[in-house]
């Protein structure tokens, strides 16, 4: 469960990215975060995986106050959260397999467990036959699937996705959405910031709209609500 109570995020240059946000996301939910560019979506997302700290207010991840977590304990918090980005953030010199294995090595998973877990994750995203390919040999959609495999390989409770379809054509975007939906069906909470009107309006999940740092709309089965 993710909770935000009266959360403010003010950057050193004085910009108020979030202004008194109150939100609760239950385990197993699928949530779209929408709003114009610069509305505060990225700050909202970054608070969840503790890339940013709230200026005031409380952010709780499974009851843990992320502001109070000591620096050396942050990695343990992040192991419960898989993050997916618009630009995939894959390591170009490593194969699809190695990119996923890298996430397990980083958290010191025993070597024997790495191979079956990586193969399972790549199978889930439909890339069993592309394991040895380098990112440069994969399409944008395939690269995003590798990054999703990397995000889920540690069995996190949450997937936080920041514009995961932003660089993809409609066909590949839908593939990614079906994949995220399947991951959600298996019990993982998915929070996704997006500008994709078609996807939001078709999938009909919970929609949180943020404008000028304030939550202006929060509805189950909501619509995108903007023209861009």
């Amino acid at each position: 469960m993710i909770e935000m109570h009266d959360v403010w995020k003010v950057y050193p240059n004085g910009i108020e990215a979030l202004r008194g946000v109150n939100i609760t996301i239950d385990t197993g939910e699928f949530v779209y975060v929408v709003g114009p560019s610069g509305a505060g979506k990225s700050s909202f997302i970054k608070l969840m995986y503790r890339e940013e700290k709230p200026t005031s207010g409380v952010v709780l991840i499974n009851g843990v106050n992320v502001k109070r977590v000591r620096d050396w304990k942050i990695p343990h918090l992040r192991r419960k959260i898989g993050v997916v980005f618009q630009d995939y953030k894959l390591l170009p010199h490593m194969s699809a397999y190695d990119n996923v294995a890298f996430a397990l090595e980083a958290v010191e998973v025993p070597t024997k467990q790495i191979q079956p877990r990586v193969e399972e994750a790549l199978e889930l995203v439909g890339l069993s036959d592309r394991m040895k390919a380098l990112p440069s040999q994969l399409s944008g959609g395939e690269q995003q699937r590798v990054s999703i495999a990397r995000a889920i390989v540690n069995n996190p409770g949450f997937i936080i996705a920041d514009e995961p379809t932003g660089n993809l054509d409609p066909e590949n975007s839908w593939d990614i959405m079906y994949l995220l939906e399947e991951i959600n069906m298996r019990g993982t909470t998915v929070v996704m910031a997006t500008h994709n009107k078609e996807i939001v309006n078709t999938m009909r999940q919970r929609v949180i709209a943020i404008e000028q740092g304030i939550v202006v709309r929060d509805e189950i089965g909501g619509e995108y609500g903007y023209e861009d």
């Binding site: 050396w72 953030k89 390591l91 890298f102 958290v107």
Partner: peptide, 16 residues
């Protein structure tokens, strides 16, 4: 820097 960024994101400890 990219590897380090990914390591941080997936929860590698600072000492790692």
């Amino acid at each position: 820097r990219r590897e380090i960024e990914v390591q941080r994101l997936v929860g590698a400890s600072n000492w790692f």
